Each structure stands twice: as C-alpha cells, then as structure tokens.
Amino acid sequence: MTVDLSVSGPVVEFSAPIDRGAAGLARDFVRKTLADLGYAGDHSDVVLVVSELVSNALRHTTTIPVIRLAGDVHRLRIEVADGSPVLPRLSATVGGWGMQLISRLTNAWGAVPDRGGKVVWCEMSAEALPGTL
C-alpha cells in the first residue's frame, strides 16, 4: 500500500467493479467516506476527481481499480490503483483533459509503479488552492 502516512486518519479502500456502474459506485463510496471522515473541503471536487481517476482506469486497463482514501477534516489523499504500468500524463488532446482537471482541482498529484501496475495519487485540502477564491 502506498498511502502517504503523513495524512492522518483512517485508510478506507474500495474495489470498483469492471462495469458501467463502477464510476457511480465509486462516487457513492467517496461521498459516504468523506462524510465519515468529516472532511471539510469541497466534496463535489473530490467526487469529480475520483470519478475521473476510476473512469481513466476502466478506459485504459482491464483490471479492477482499487480506490483508497485517507484523511481527516483538513486533508485528504486519494489513490487509485490499477494493473497497467502506463503512467498518466497531462495532455490537451481530444479525450485527454482528465488529468488537466485533476491537476487544477488538487494540491498535488502523481503516479508511481506498483506491483506490475500503478497507483495514481492526489492530495486535496479543505483550504482554498493558491490563486482561487
């Protein structure tokens, strides 16, 4: 597991099924987990980020994406693991705006190889991002 231990709070994990309902189930999982964590940030932004990461995993791999959330009222770490070793990159091509969106909505993001696949992670905080209201 690659959860950043500097983020306090419990680690919660969910395996999204490989079907059309996966993104919706992931969104439901995220909403419930954010409420349980008491996260004070924008829940809709977190839901959008996780939905995009899960959609990317389903679009580009044939493995079950695994979502991990860790955090508390102020800070959140999101991880989505899948079985593809291909790391995401920022792209401004047709169909390639997802990571641009994630880059704008999160404080930081990245991807690391993990057991033959990868983990795409991002961190968000309840405070406003620099340069936003």
Rank of each mutant, 00 (worst) to 15 (best):
D4G: 01
D4V: 03
L5N: 01
L5G: 00
L5D: 03
L5Q: 07
S6A: 06
S6P: 00
V7R: 01
S8P: 04
G9A: 02
G9C: 06
G9Y: 09
P10E: 12
P10Y: 08
V11H: 02
V12C: 03
F14M: 03
F14A: 01
A16T: 04
A16L: 06
I18H: 09
G21F: 13
A23E: 14
G24T: 12
D28P: 13
F29N: 07
V30W: 10
V30M: 09
R31E: 13
L34P: 08
D36G: 06
D36N: 09
A40H: 13
G41N: 08
D42K: 03
D42R: 07
S44N: 12
D45R: 15
V46N: 05
L48A: 11
L48Q: 09
V49C: 05
V49H: 05
V50C: 06
V50I: 11
S51P: 05
E52D: 05
L53F: 13
L53N: 07
V54R: 06
V54A: 03
S55I: 08
S55A: 13
S55Q: 13
N56K: 15
A57L: 14
R59P: 12
T61C: 11
T63A: 10
I64M: 11
P65G: 08
V66C: 08
V66F: 07
I67Y: 02
A70M: 04
G71S: 01
V73E: 15
V73M: 13
V73K: 14
H74K: 14
R75N: 06
R75M: 04
R75Y: 09
L76V: 02
R77K: 01
V80P: 11
A81M: 10
A81F: 10
D82V: 10
G83A: 03
G83D: 04
S84C: 10
P85E: 06
P88L: 05
L90N: 00
L90H: 00
L90K: 01
S91P: 04
A92E: 04
T93R: 07
T93N: 02
T93Q: 05
V94C: 00
G96C: 05
G96Y: 07
W97N: 00
W97P: 00
W97H: 06
G98M: 09
Q100L: 13
Q100G: 03
I102M: 01
S103P: 01
R104E: 01
L105H: 00
L105V: 00
L105S: 00
W109R: 02
A111P: 14
V112S: 12
V112G: 08
D114P: 10
G116E: 03
G117D: 11
V119A: 07
V119P: 12
V120K: 06
W121S: 07
W121Y: 15
C122A: 15
E123T: 15
E123M: 10
M124F: 10
S125T: 14
A126Q: 10
E127Q: 14
A128Y: 05
P130V: 08
P130K: 02
G131P: 09
T132R: 06
L133H: 04
L133P: 12
L133W: 10
